[in-house]
Design a protein around this nucleic acid. Structure first.
Lengths: 332, 332
DNA sequence: TATTGTTTGTCAAGCATTTGTCTAATTACT
DNA sequence: AGTAATTAGACAAATGCTTGACAAACAATA
């Protein structure tokens, strides 16, 4: 494995670290069973080789699997290896008390609830001022509070979506800089990723692939869609922004998805995108349903109609659509 | 104040700051073990070369990994490098007080881990297979487990960084598709954002701005740097990737940052970036310290030196630099 | 079930080695 | 003048080693 031979060999401390055994145990195994026979420095300190470390690791694994140390110290490395792999498959959860006493008890705690601001405008304002100040912790805190106070749906519709929209507008208007937009994106992205992750994932749930088509670089809409879908009980395969259509199609096929959700925000009018969307629809199997959302979908309405995509104009719309699709799913 | 005479070699003060070792230790390592043999000015003051600094950093890493200084001073740089990377795969030991006191403040003790897989390779493999399957929940779970099992440092060095690198390589090699890379990025990004957020933020802590310069689109390195800085107790202003230099400078000024950290990974050689970096340094006030890291920094070494940037070659280096800068901060 | 003897991890005392830190006096830099 | 670097020597904390002992867990028996 690591064929590193330091001229002096490894010290006790290093061996203890690499094996997870205490120096006490290492010495006592040597004294009582001759588990390893390290060399010595002129001053009496032990010096171990790579082979020594490997052997100690094997012995550790075997003892942790329940074998008594006295009976296995004479076995060869090969036999030890077989021993621990065999036991791993045999009885995975039959631990001895000795091995189990190092286990840490799990700690679960519930956050306390308090009186909270329920007007979305207020939360939005807090978020905006945090962005203006480039104050990431404040933005995180404001988002977290609004989530608790408003619930996921209201928060996404009335805080997150307007926030990103206004930040984008302010940038185009010159009131805010690109940095503000970047900062807001980074924080909101992490935040949305978090709440999407928190929902329990049912492995049997239908799959939706969420992404943005080529040329669409704004990711937040897609992330909001992903969070929404997760909370509706879908398994979400989130792919980020700006993917070639072949890649999108490959992901849909590979994940056996029922729905493909596309977010389109900016640029509002991209000539290539018309062709790309048509091409995408040809790659997709007929039973896959395409849902498109975002502020730019009006520009592509005709194409979307041609390829049989469902246009959603708000997250609420998306929720309703997903709900319907899921019902049909169960029936068939 | 920061007199960096390259032709004359580095002074003791600079070397101490760059390595995180005290002048005492540097001298005593030289006296007892001949760790380095710096030149001398006519008046007897030591003058160190870049190679000396690198060697001291390597020795520092190896000793922090538990190796006795007396046993490793004869090894070549190459051997030292292997040694400390091999040892990072070891579990942190619970027996050494000396190693514990060098640990960064603010890092909570980790739970007992007898049952948790402690080999980073295994976690990495799990993550890679989840990416291959486009299985986002599995990837999230694998990352979360590796965080608990390995701790933040090891996980970032041995799981997250190799994961993104291997996924990128596999894409260039044709083994994986772009979707895989996108999915991995999205999940890892959220994950890193989460762990950075979890650390408590001290409002009086010094501020570091983290981003990537123009043209640098890979965000993960910057996110790892952000998470590292947060765990070192800094307030982090994270700005995402690919920002114009004027924007970076504006953010630094507005947030009153002490340090600007840039991550540079890909592309490896961008002609514009040389100019951009020079321009950036002109925008920055002199008291702002620029730290650059990432796989591409070698390509820009000369520019970085010109503008007085500190190059860090690993997250460990970054940690040490930040620690030093923070100490200086407190004094003044 | 209760009682043995065995296994096995842990600890203590006492001494040697390693290693980071400190002091004091001197000289050099700014 | 005041800060920083130098040397030499000394010190203290941490670690390692050995011998011997102890107690909890285990296995086999009555």
């Amino acid at each position: 494995m690591f064929t590193m031979q330091a001229d002096q060999g490894y010290s006790m401390r290093v061996v203890a670290r690499r094996t997870g055994l205490s120096p006490h145990v290492i010495r006592v195994w040597e004294r009582r069973y001759g588990a390893v026979t390290p060399g010595r420095t002129p001053t009496g300190h032990r010096t171990y080789t790579d082979a020594d470390i490997e052997r100690l690791q094997l012995l550790r694994d075997a003892t942790q699997a329940g074998h008594s140390i006295s009976r296995i110290t004479h076995l060869s490395n090969e036999e030890l290896r077989k021993l621990s792999t065999a036991d791993e498959t045999a009885r995975p959860d039959n631990y001895s008390k000795r091995a189990a006493k190092n286990a840490a008890p799990g700690v679960v705690k519930e956050p306390a609830r308090s009186f909270l601001e329920s007007r979305p405008e207020v939360h939005l304002k807090r978020c905006l001022s945090a962005v203006g100040e480039l104050d990431a912790p404040a933005l995180e805190a404001a988002l977290a509070q609004s989530l608790v106070a408003l619930g996921q749906r209201l928060m996404m519709d009335e805080v997150v979506a307007p926030l990103m929209q206004q930040v984008g507008d302010a940038w185009r208007h010159g009131t805010l800089r690109i940095v503000h937009e970047h900062l807001a994106s980074a924080i909101v992205r992490t935040f949305l990723g978090q709440i999407a992750q928190k929902q329990t994932q049912d492995p049997t749930a239908p799959v939706v692939v969420v992404t943005t088509p080529p040329g669409q670089v704004h990711e937040i809409g897609a992330m909001m869609a992903a969070a929404t879908a997760t909370s509706e009980g879908w398994r979400v395969v989130y792919l980020g922004a700006n993917l070639p259509v072949e890649e999108i199609a490959a992901a849909v096929l590979h994940s056996n998805a029922r729905v493909l959700a596309l977010s389109m925000v900016y640029p509002m009018d991209d000539a290539h995108l018309h062709d790309d969307l048509r091409r995408l629809s040809r790659f997709l199997p007929p039973h896959v349903i395409l849902v498109a959302g975002g502020r730019a979908i009006e520009q592509y309405a005709s194409v979307l109609k041609d390829i049989g995509a469902i246009a959603v104009h708000s997250l609420m719309d998306l929720r309703v659509e997903l709900e319907q699709l899921r019902k049909n799913e169960v029936r068939s």
